[in-house]
């Protein structure tokens, strides 16, 4: 009983309860399971897509978001690639 009280009190301090981390982790793993891809594959894809897009646009890599998302049993690949500026290759030549 004392142990229960201690756990209750100590849980006040910790901001994040296990329920939320369970849900967040599941959201991610289910999206990956449904798409049939693993994190390595996503990373590889991310790099290849970035490589292609970077030929034409200057992408802000730090701000980019690239993930498999799932809602209502439909899964999609979401890529958000913020553009710094459009490369004017011709003018440079």
């Amino acid at each position: 009983m004392i142990k229960d009280i201690l756990t209750t009190i100590s849980s006040w301090g910790s901001a994040k309860k296990s329920r939320h981390s369970a849900k967040n982790r599941l959201q991610l793993v289910l999206a990956n399971d449904r798409a049939g891809v693993n994190p390595e594959l996503i990373e590889k894809m991310r790099q290849e897509i970035l490589e292609v897009v970077s030929r034409y646009l200057d992408i802000d890599v730090a701000e980019m978001d690239f993930s498999i998302q799932s809602s209502d049993r439909t899964t999609s690949l979401q890529a958000n690639l913020p553009i710094r500026k459009i490369k004017r290759t011709r003018e440079l030549k």
């Binding site: 209750t8 849980s11 309860k17 296990s18 329920r19 369970a22 849900k23 959201q27 289910l30």
Partner: peptide
């Protein structure tokens, strides 16, 4: 446990599994 946010709720499961 759900009340204490230490277990995923039925709503959470329905959100995830649809």
């Amino acid at each position: 446990m759900v009340q204490m946010d230490e277990m995923i709720s039925v709503e959470d499961i329905l959100d995830l599994l649809v």
